[in-house]
Simulated assay, not measured.
Amino acid sequence: MTGMSNVVPTLPAADLPVDLRRIELLCARLRPEEGVELDHIVWKLAKLPRAEGWDNVLWPVGALDGRELVLRVARREVSHALLGREVTVLRRLRGLGTQLPMQLPTVLAVAEDAVLVEWIEGDSADASEGAARVAVAHDLARMLATIHSGPAPEVGLNPVRGVPLLTRADAFLTDLDRAGLPPELRARAAARWRTGIAAETWQGRALLLHGDPHPGNVVLPPVGVRGAATLIDWGDTTRGDPASDLGGMLLHQPSGALLRTYRETAAWTGIDDEEVWSALEARAWAWATRMALALVLTYPVGTGLGAAGHRLLNS
Rank of each mutant, 00 (worst) to 15 (best):
D272L: 10
P164L: 08
L280N: 04
V110M: 10
T201G: 13
G248K: 06
L280F: 02
V301R: 15
L250H: 10
A284F: 07
E281R: 14
L71I: 05
W277L: 09
V70N: 04
R188Y: 08
H310C: 08
V225N: 02
S149M: 02
A190T: 05
W193C: 03
R205M: 04
T261D: 14
N217Y: 10
L71F: 01
A266C: 09
A137F: 02
P101R: 09
W54Y: 12
I147E: 00
A198I: 06
L258K: 06
D65S: 06
T195D: 13
A266N: 07
T146W: 07
A292S: 11
T289F: 06
G95N: 12
R72F: 00
A308C: 13
I41R: 01
A267M: 07
G302W: 10
T167V: 06
E274R: 14
T2H: 13
D126A: 05
Q253M: 04
D113Y: 00
I232V: 15
D55A: 12
G248E: 13
G150N: 04
G97H: 11
V115S: 07
G62Q: 08
L71R: 01
T88H: 11
T98M: 08
P12D: 11
E275K: 14
M249K: 11
A257D: 15
G224L: 10
T98Q: 12
D273I: 07
P159I: 11
L208G: 04
R283N: 06
R91I: 08
R283D: 06
D123I: 03
A109D: 07
Q253F: 14
R92D: 13
A206G: 08
T146G: 04
G304Q: 05
R85D: 02
A228Y: 01
L82E: 07
L100K: 02
K44Q: 14
A228Q: 12
G66I: 04
A169R: 15
A127C: 09
R239F: 02
R31D: 12
G196L: 01
H80C: 05
G150T: 13
R22K: 13
R50M: 12
I197K: 09
E86F: 00
E112V: 03
I41N: 00
T146I: 03
T303C: 05
M4L: 14
D19Q: 07
V87K: 12
R29E: 15
V57K: 02
L11Y: 01
L246H: 07
E118K: 09
T174K: 14
A135G: 12
V136F: 01
I23S: 14
A206K: 10
P222M: 05
P32C: 10
V110T: 15
G216E: 02
T298K: 12
R29Q: 14
D236T: 01
T230F: 00
G309D: 09
R168M: 11
R72C: 00
G150M: 14
R142E: 14
A243Y: 00
R133G: 04
V36K: 05
A228I: 02
L90G: 11
E274G: 09
G130I: 06
D19V: 07
L176M: 03
V301I: 12
R226N: 09
P49V: 05
L173M: 12
L38P: 00
V78H: 13
N314C: 12
